[in-house]
Design a protein around this nucleic acid. Structure first.
Lengths: 153, 153
DNA sequence: AGTGAAAAGGCTTTAAC
DNA sequence: GTTAAAGCCTTTTCACT
């Protein structure tokens, strides 16, 4: 972990608040002219602080109207069991998020599907085939109240 | 929901696979020259299919080493209870994701903090003050196995 | 070291076809 | 959808603080 000066933090805050700002616009917001702003952003990328950019799409408009949370308990916590499971999870495109957690369940998945029928199909064809699963519970997501990836800098 | 032709879908797939591709690069990947590619992307934005862009930061490097899932059950499902709770959730920057779900719990939150101490502080100062909460359970996230927002187009 | 000004280069968008 | 031109943004260079 590296520490950044206030200007770098201001740049990151600006970028987080709006991911489509130009370097020039970011510079204006943080009180910097183009060249130092451009250099600092390049540095932040080189240091690995800025890891990438993402395009956000409207899932509804594209026909993905259903999201599901799946909680999973594995048979064991052996290394191989965990690795096999994780590898299988990464290969399923409908699984957007997979978290290994401490507590009653081992994994939380967030899944995006077109509709419930699509989910049932996915469940029967792929999710039940995930290796090492002892128990699985699904909860349909009714509403996404907040969906940010911003850090509270 | 609108349907898009194969070229538009290819554009969206390319953008999802790498959010920092230029219009020119996207064009190359989908077999389109610059101007039609630019026009199509502008259209997709205008139609609301592309909703925005996001910069991804390295949470670890920036000192956010702990993430927690919090499951919450409310006292009631009345409109006012839900709205008050959601409003309070949106105002807490450490809460990145908040999902209203069907099932044993009402809400799933994903929280990002510097460390466990920071979490305890947040819990005591803000989370316990969330309105309408009947029960709260927390699970520490050990590993983010997958974290995508891509749709399986 | 880091900043600011100016110029060069690249990319995106617009306009005409 | 293509080609070509205009315009904007980014980046590099250089002088300065």
């Amino acid at each position: 972990m590296l520490d950044l000066d206030e200007v770098d933090k201001a740049i990151l805050r600006a970028m987080q608040s709006d991911g489509s700002l130009s370097v020039t616009e970011i510079g204006e917001r943080v009180g910097l002219s183009q060249s130092p702003c451009s250099r600092r952003i390049a540095q932040l990328q080189k240091k690995g602080v800025i890891t990438g950019r993402r395009v956000m799409l409207n899932a509804r408009e594209l026909g993905f109207q259903t999201m599901v949370i799946v909680r999973i308990r594995l048979h064991s916590h052996e290394k191989k069991t965990l690795e096999d499971f994780q590898k299988a999870v990464r290969a399923i495109p409908e699984i957007q998020i997979a978290l290994l957690v401490l507590g009653d369940f081992d994994f939380y998945l967030r899944i995006v599907v077109r509709d419930i029928e699509h989910y049932q199909q996915l469940l029967q064809s792929k999710l039940v085939a995930l290796p090492g699963v002892r128990e699985m519970q699904s909860s349909v997501i009714l509403d996404v109240v907040k969906d940010s990836s911003a850090l509270p800098l």
